[in-house]
Design a protein around this nucleic acid. Structure first.
Lengths: 185, 185
DNA sequence: CAGAAACTGAACACTGTGTCCGGAAACTGA
DNA sequence: TCAGTTTCCGGACACAGTGTTCAGTTTCTG
C-alpha cells in the first residue's frame, strides 16, 4: 500500500482519538479532525465516507492488531484465555480504549441504562451475606449490571419471546453460582 | 400541568419512539419527529432543547413509572428482586425498550465491542465441560460478554490502575462460580 | 525520469439546527 | 360564559456541518 495512504489514514485515526478524548465523539466534526490532522477535507472523504466510518476502521485495525499479537489460545478446556491478552492490549493502548468506551459512549442510552441498573445492583450487593469490599465489589457491580443490560438487550432483539420468569431464574443463577449453574446433567 | 403541555410532550415522545423503531435514533431528525407528531417545530423547542433531551425525558418518565408500579422490595436478603419487575415492565412496553436498546444502540462503539466479545465468549462456552444448550447458553453468552465489556469500561474510567491480572482473576471467578467466589472470609 | 496515484484548497448545493415573532387557538378560574 | 393567560402555529432567518467536485500540485513507484 502506498505510504501516503497509510500515513494519511493513521494520522486521521489518531486525530479522531485525540479529539474524542478531549470532547467526546459526538461533539467532534470532520472539519476538526482534518484541522487536527493537518489534512485536507477532500482527502478525508477520499479515504472514509464519514466520521463513523473512520471510527469503525480505527476500531477494526486495532482489534486486528490485538488478535495478531496474542493468537487465541485454543485448548479444549474452558479457561477464558482471551481475557488477559485483551486487558493487556487495552492497558497498552489506554488512550484508544478510553476514547472508545469513555466519553464517547457515556451519552448513549445503553450507558444510561447501565448506570441506573448499577445503582440497583450496588444496593443488592450491600445486603447480607457480606461480600468482599472495595475494588472487588465495584468490579462485581459493573459486571453484573452490564451483564443484565446485555441480557435484556439480547432478549428484546429476539422478540422478547421467553417469559420474564425464565430470564429471572437464569440471571440469578449466573450471578450467584456462575456457569456451574448451567452444567449439563 | 396544562393539558396541552402534557399532550404535546407525550405525543412527541411517542413519535420519537415510533421513528426510532423504524430507522434508528441517529437517523431521526427533529423535523421528522414534528411531522410524525403533527406538531410545529417551534413548539418542539418550547418543550425540549434537542432530540437528545426528548429521548432522555422519555426514558426518565418511563423509568419513574416502572419504579412506582413496582416499589423496590427491600428485604435484607440479597435476592435481586428488582429483576422480575424490570423485565415485566420491559415486556409490557416492548416497543419503548426495543427503541431504546435496539437499533438505537446498535451502532455505538460499546455495542460493536460487545458483539466482538460475544463471539469470543461463545467459543469458550462451546468447549468442554458441556453446558446447557439453546436459549440458556445464548443468554449466558450475552450476559458474560456484556459483563466483561462493562467491567473493562469501569476499569478504564477509573484510570486502569488495577493490574490486568487482577481483573482477569475476578472476572473468571464471577463467571465460573458467581458471587460465592467473593464471599467474605 | 515518466506515469500513476494521492493530496490540496476552494467552491458549491444541501440538510438540519436552533431562535424569533405575530397571530390564532385552547385552557383556566371566577 | 367570559377575560386573561398560556400554548401552539408556521414561516423566516442565520448558521454550522456535510458530502461532492475539480483543476492544479506534490509524492510515490517502477
Amino acid at each position: 500500500m502506498d505510504r501516503r495512504v497509510a500515513r494519511t489514514r493513521a494520522t486521521l485515526q489518531r486525530a479522531l482519538i485525540a479529539l474524542m478524548l478531549r470532547k467526546g465523539y459526538d461533539a467532534v466534526t470532520v472539519e476538526e479532525i482534518c484541522t487536527e490532522a493537518d489534512i485536507g477535507r477532500s482527502t478525508f472523504y477520499a479515504h472514509f465516507t464519514s466520521k463513523e466510518d473512520l471510527k469503525r476502521s480505527g476500531l477494526e485495525d486495532q482489534l486486528r492488531g490485538m488478535v495478531q499479537g496474542h493468537p487465541a489460545a485454543s485448548g479444549s478446556e474452558r479457561d477464558f484465555g482471551f481475557v488477559l491478552p485483551f486487558l493487556e492490549h487495552a492497558r497498552d493502548h489506554v488512550d484508544l480504549y478510553r476514547a472508545l468506551v469513555g466519553k464517547g459512549g457515556a451519552n448513549t442510552t445503553l450507558a444510561m441504562l447501565t448506570r441506573i441498573v448499577s445503582d440497583m445492583v450496588r444496593e443488592e450487593l450491600a445486603k447480607s451475606p457480606p461480600i468482599a469490599k472495595g475494588p472487588a465489589r465495584d468490579m462485581a457491580t459493573a459486571f453484573i449490571a452490564g451483564g443484565f443490560v446485555s441480557l435484556v438487550t439480547r432478549w428484546l432483539d429476539d422478540g422478547a419471546r421467553l417469559p420474564p420468569e425464565r430470564l429471572d431464574v437464569v440471571f440469578r443463577g449466573l450471578v450467584v453460582d456462575g456457569l456451574a449453574h448451567l452444567a449439563e446433567a
